[in-house]
């Protein structure tokens, strides 16, 4: 079977199980082959290794359909690939930042089906069929989102690295109804670390957007 003929795996019941059991069996066999090939010339080994890898890579990926910033993507990913690494390393959507990779800083915050979540702790394969919004999808063309405007106006950042995560979180904070007082904003923005220390200005920016009352 050619890779592009692979039927889409619905992740249903045991539908994919069969394929993955195949992979394990294959890998076991191929390691056996590799073991046999240990003594021959290094060239043969290298060739086999390369073939192994291509087939292994093929078996290790699963199809995922995502709508990212309004655009449909049909992708093949390894189950261990996080949404964050998929965005940054495969789709060149580098606006979503990696600050810790362990769910401890909020730099990777994106919206999945409208909710703010951490993309570093989200396996891409588990997002199948969902709508993802990243910082790149917040503005309408050249027209910045009101929260982006407010961050510029109140200087809600310095180095800018945590900023996409802050803004995605801030938009959600207002939409959730958690921006009614400065203290509430502080609490509900505490999942986004800013090491430059722009918190005070971020609170001002969110307060203004919330008071503006526009539909964001």
């Amino acid at each position: 079977m050619q890779p592009d003929q692979q039927p889409p795996c619905p992740h249903e019941e045991n539908a994919c199980d069969h394929k993955h059991d195949d992979r394990r069996t294959f890998l076991k066999k191929s390691s056996f082959l590799a073991a046999v090939a240990l003594t021959p010339a290094p060239l043969i080994k290298a060739a086999e290794k390369k073939a192994d890898e291509k087939i292994a890579a093929y078996f290790e990926t699963v199809p995922v359909n995502l709508e990212i910033n309004g655009k449909q993507h049909s992708l093949k990913v390894e189950p261990r690939t996080t949404l964050l690494d998929l965005l940054r390393e495969q789709l060149d959507l580098t606006g979503t930042k990696k600050g810790c990779d362990w769910g401890q800083c909020g730099a990777c915050t994106v919206h999945v089906n409208g909710k703010r979540v951490l993309s570093c702790l989200s396996l891409a394969v588990m997002q199948d069929g969902k709508k993802i919004t990243t910082i790149e999808g917040l503005a309408s063309g050249e027209q910045l989102h009101p929260m982006q405007e407010a961050f510029i106006k109140y200087d809600g950042f310095q180095c800018g690295y945590c900023t996409p995560g802050q803004i995605m979180s801030a938009v959600a904070c207002v939409r959730e109804g958690h921006a009614h007082s400065e203290d509430q904003i502080r609490e509900y923005m505490s999942g986004n670390i800013c090491r430059c220390g722009a918190y005070r200005n971020i609170v001002d920016a969110i307060s203004e957007v919330n008071k503006g009352g526009q539909n964001i």
Binding site: H11, R80, M126, D128
Partner: peptide
């Protein structure tokens, strides 16, 4: 992270059986 297989069943029993 090691590679792993992934399934997404839609019934409790199927999930428990898989485990």
């Amino acid at each position: 992270m090691i590679t792993f297989d992934y399934i997404k069943p839609s019934a409790n029993k199927a999930a428990i059986d898989a485990i």
